[in-house]
């Protein structure tokens, strides 16, 4: 069964471009109905501490899922597991049907070889809280690096696509600028362009605006909204409840490593039933409700 799910390297390389270009048409292998990302009973421990407990989650094509929850709830760990930056140790994460990170052998589960991990997550784009741009490369250099080294595009092609991506995030004019000379918001937009250039089927955002000064948050959220509108499949860990309410198709509330509540933004933000969720939202409101002080 395993061999069917994880195709050998020989079929991998040429199919990538073609599958992406025919994204609008129904795909034969996956079909439009199959979820892009499936998590079943995913668990993760750091030593004795269980940070994720039996997480079940499906993300459909073009769906935007927001993960919210208090700090330490495991939401970042969960997101990082989806790119195998954290090794989850129970359950399965499948990306377009392929098992991520592990392979089953006679002696039990083993870490898959790096090439196979890369093959499975080639359709996953990741955006980090700390941007993680490479400071010794220009904005364009950051976007083109993987196109050149991984996709093996020619310099011209890579540059063309890189410029298009920078243009998409409104930073074509900063192509030759080094990260150190960009604002935080601009750096994060370059980081988004870098991930988008690889034409991922799903984008993961790990608190993309948490490291930004408040006045720079808007420009990044705007780019993300545009992406969502264009039909990008997205999973977003965020503290921006406004963004979640406006853009998300479903919102998931995590606490102590468990999914406590899930539903539409309406259900989560306006009809919260679970006490832990109510408490979390109340704290959020208290922290942000400066206008109430004025009334009181």
């Amino acid at each position: 069964m395993n061999s069917l799910l994880i195709p050998g390297g020989n079929v991998a390389a040429p199919t990538r471009e073609t599958t992406r270009e025919s994204l609008d048409e129904p795909m034969k292998t996956n079909g439009d109905q199959s979820p892009v990302l499936t998590l079943s009973q995913v668990g993760k421990s750091f030593g004795n501490l269980r940070v994720l407990k039996g997480i079940d989650l499906q993300v459909q094509r073009s769906e935007v899922v927001c993960l919210i929850g208090p700090s330490g709830s495991g939401k970042s760990t969960l997101l990082r597991s989806m790119a195998f930056l954290e090794e989850y140790d129970e359950g399965e994460i499948r990306i377009e049907g392929q098992l991520l990170g592990w392979q089953d052998t006679d002696k039990g589960r083993r870490r898959a070889p790096q090439s196979q991990i890369n093959q499975v997550r080639r359709n996953v784009g990741m955006v980090f809280q700390q941007f993680n741009l490479w400071p010794h490369m220009t904005a364009l250099g950051n976007v083109c690096e993987a196109l050149r080294r991984v996709r093996k595009l020619s310099a011209d092609e890579a540059k063309k696509r890189g410029m298009a991506m920078l243009d998409k995030v409104g930073l074509a004019h900063k192509a030759e600028t080094y990260p150190a000379q960009l604002s935080g918001g601009q750096q994060q937009r370059v980081a988004i362009a870098r991930a988008l250039a690889m034409e991922p089927h799903i984008m993961l955002f790990d608190e993309p605006t948490s490291a930004l000064d408040p006045e720079l948050v808007g420009e990044v959220l705007q780019v993300m909204k545009t992406l969502a509108k264009e039909g990008m499949t997205m999973v977003v860990v965020t503290h921006e409840m406004g963004f979640a309410a406006q853009v998300a198709d479903s919102v998931i509330f995590l606490d102590q490593g468990e999914i406590v509540a899930r539903g539409t933004p309406q259900q989560i933000f306006h009809n919260a039933e679970q006490p832990r969720l109510q408490q979390f939202l109340q704290n959020y409101l208290d922290r942000n409700a400066f206008w109430q002080d004025a009334k009181a």
């Binding site: 790119a83 930056l85 890369n118 997550r121 080639r122 996953v124 784009g125 990741m126 980090f128 993680n132 741009l133 490479w134 690096e145 993987a146 080294r149 991984v150 980081a191 870098r194 991930a195 690889m198």
Partner: peptide, 8 residues
């Protein structure tokens, strides 16, 4: 990690 995610 960023490089890792991009398949580098």
């Amino acid at each position: 990690e960023a490089a890792d995610c991009l398949g580098i």
